[in-house]
Simulated scan of single mutants.
Amino acid sequence: MSSPTIRLGLRDWDHLVPLMSGRVQVPGFQVEIDARDVTPDVLAEPGLDGGETSFSRYVRARAAGDDRLVGLPAFVMRGFRHRCVLVRADSPLRSFGRLAGARVGLTGWPDSGNTWTRALIRAAGVDLSGIEWRVGPLAAGEVGKERLGDRPLPPNVSAMAEGESLVGELAAGRLDAILTPFMPPEFFTPDSRFRHLLDDHPAAERAYWAATGFVPGIHLVTLKKEVVEAHPELPAALLAGLEASKRHWLDRRRLLADTTPWLLHSLTESAEVFGADWMPYGTENNAAMTRAFCEELYAQGIAPEPIDPAVVFPLPLAAVAAA
């Protein structure tokens, strides 16, 4: 009897490559991964059994009673947000506290990453309602993304006009800063017009880790409810496969570290700071981060009511590497 085929829509994160290539298997299932350029809308695609999903979108749906997706505590995208605030190269702004009363653009209002970034600004004592927020694409011509969410926007939040972009408005001086999870191409050139707000964002991120014990989760893997009901053993098996893929990837990166000039240094430093795993899977391993995110969604008005973290992961899964 052949194993059930499970089709997932995921972006090609390097730690997923062992699973995508077949080097790592999920016992009992034939997992097919459809590599995507952008995050899929899992529920909108009948051909998908699951895939990569925005943490914010998932949590808000679960909190509203929508249980059509079952999340695995496997965050395929996570990262510190201190690096995600850009200003002009000649800007006098060099701290989150200086953003009080500023004009700030961002790529999406309810987005997971931007929620975490606003949390940093809020923690610096800045009243978010005093900032003039503009929501729009990083670069002109970007389409196909829901940027405003499904709730009424606060009065200090507005959408950018057709043809405008965060990069263009920042360069022109009509914005003081922008929040973006991805750097514009020119950021990697010596004469970039932009820089990070923080002069030493790695130091700030290390301090954040010391204070919280987690790296913020942005996207997670979800499965459709009917797929889980048909295959109740799938969530644990898939989580084990994701864990095995991540471990295999890390072992290979440590062996084949000559893919960037300083990758070995980065891997060594990460092990020193974070220990064995900076992106742990499992419900308990992510409990503090999940609780903090739920609190922040409500504090920022993204969620209309407080969210019980217990609704986020209905299956108490632990990360155990597949044999």
Rank of each mutant, 00 (worst) to 15 (best):
243 E>Y: 05
244 A>Y: 00
244 A>F: 02
244 A>H: 01
244 A>D: 01
245 S>Y: 01
245 S>I: 04
245 S>H: 03
245 S>W: 01
246 K>I: 05
248 H>Q: 15
248 H>Y: 09
249 W>D: 09
249 W>Q: 08
249 W>N: 11
249 W>G: 01
249 W>V: 05
250 L>N: 07
250 L>H: 08
250 L>E: 10
250 L>T: 09
250 L>A: 12
251 D>H: 12
252 R>D: 10
252 R>I: 08
253 R>H: 06
254 R>I: 11
254 R>G: 12
254 R>T: 11
254 R>N: 12
254 R>M: 13
256 L>N: 14
256 L>R: 13
256 L>I: 07
256 L>C: 11
256 L>V: 10
257 A>I: 00
257 A>T: 05
258 D>M: 08
258 D>H: 10
258 D>K: 08
259 T>Q: 13
259 T>K: 09
259 T>E: 14
259 T>F: 06
260 T>E: 15
260 T>Q: 11
260 T>W: 00
260 T>L: 13
261 P>C: 07
263 L>C: 08
264 L>Y: 04
264 L>E: 14
264 L>V: 08
264 L>R: 13
264 L>A: 15
265 H>V: 15
265 H>C: 09
265 H>E: 15
265 H>R: 10
265 H>P: 00
265 H>A: 15
265 H>F: 13
266 S>F: 11
267 L>S: 03
267 L>C: 04
268 T>I: 06
268 T>S: 10
269 E>S: 09
269 E>P: 00
269 E>A: 14
270 S>L: 08
270 S>M: 11
271 A>P: 00
271 A>M: 07
271 A>S: 13
272 E>F: 07
272 E>S: 12
272 E>R: 15
273 V>F: 09
273 V>K: 04
274 F>I: 06
274 F>S: 04
274 F>T: 05
274 F>W: 10
274 F>K: 02
275 G>S: 07
275 G>C: 07
275 G>K: 04
276 A>C: 06
277 D>S: 05
278 W>C: 13
278 W>G: 12
278 W>F: 14
279 M>W: 08
279 M>L: 13
279 M>I: 10
279 M>D: 12
280 P>A: 07
280 P>T: 08
281 Y>V: 01
282 G>T: 05
282 G>M: 05
283 T>V: 07
284 E>P: 02
285 N>H: 12
285 N>C: 08
285 N>I: 04
285 N>E: 12
285 N>M: 07
286 N>D: 02
286 N>R: 11
286 N>S: 09
287 A>G: 02
288 A>M: 02
288 A>I: 07
289 M>N: 09
289 M>S: 13
290 T>F: 03
290 T>E: 00
291 R>Q: 12
291 R>D: 10
292 A>E: 06
293 F>N: 00
293 F>I: 06
293 F>A: 03
294 C>S: 04
294 C>W: 01
294 C>A: 06
294 C>I: 05
294 C>Y: 00
294 C>F: 03
295 E>I: 05
